[in-house]
Design a protein around this nucleic acid. Structure first.
Ligand code: FES
Ligand code: FES
Lengths: 138, 138
DNA sequence: TTTAATTGCTACTTTATTGTAGTATTTAAA
DNA sequence: TTTAAATACTACAATAAAGTAGCAATTAAA
């Protein structure tokens, strides 16, 4: 596929915070763990907080914690907090409408795959992501 | 998904040339049919010709014809002529490697969908695209 | 109340994609 | 040989995504 870098980082940071159990996560510790540039990750963290996926505490000894339980955070929710997601679900040839009633020439072959993709983003939660603890890569 | 506009136009123009049977197609006629900007579509046509998907004839009464039979032209071939395709097939979280041996936390869920996507682009030919002639949308 | 450590905000830079403009080159008919 | 209609080439403009820099605001401890 082609999630934006911003979305990829967002998913990774939420996964990391779920996997590594700490009381609170400062931006600087997350930056060094994930190897993403300072200001870029900070902006992502702020956006995630604005959308309720994280909760932030300002000031000294502040930082971020998860805003809700990992089994309530879906991938689509994280991606939506970062970018407009319509492009992932629209017509593969770029036409306005993409329905069975008004299909393009590729619709019949593409729509089933697109539906799986939607289901993947809609149904996969951060808890699912970490269901196999032997895989640790953030 | 998220094919680039350039790839979308390229697929549409090749589909159109397959569906509408003419001796030769001038850039200007294709431009008016597809509603894509003049110079932009011309560049796409030149690129498709360079990759053998079309064959061009310069000079007066020149234009473009298909470079090979529609059942030999795959979607991936057209997309590859327009852009680098690795991004569609790489790790959904952006990691370098994406193999069963070195998976990220999403790999198990993502890989099957990605494989279908690859098969869709690799196996679908322009002939397949036009197998249902009741759908005419270019 | 001061200070250090933290998040938040605004503006800029860089890079890639998308689209536009102008001109050169090619070719066959007149 | 001239000309008209076509493709090819080069350079630029506009937009969006990715990434960087600096400073403001907040907060709890000392
Ligand atoms: S209309 Fe094009 S994929 Fe659905
Ligand atoms: S390693 Fe991430 S999807 Fe395969």
């Amino acid at each position: 596929m082609n999630l934006s870098n911003t979305s990829q980082y967002a998913i990774r940071v939420v996964s990391y915070m779920t996997f590594e159990d700490e009381d609170i996560y400062s931006a600087s510790s997350l930056i060094s763990k994930l190897g993403v540039s300072d200001k870029y990750l900070k902006r992502i963290l702020t956006q995630l907080s604005e959308h309720g996926i994280l909760r932030s505490t300002q000031g000294r000894y502040g930082g971020y914690i998860l805003g809700k339980s990992p089994d309530k955070i879906t991938l689509i929710e994280i991606v939506q907090a970062m970018e407009s997601v319509e492009k992932y679900f629209g017509c593969v040839l770029g036409f306005e409408s993409c329905t069975d009633e008004d299909p393009c020439t590729l619709h019949n072959k593409w729509a089933p795959i697109r539906n799986e993709l939607m289901e993947f983003l809609n149904k996969t939660t951060i808890k699912d992501v970490l269901s196999n603890p032997s895989i640790i890569k953030f």
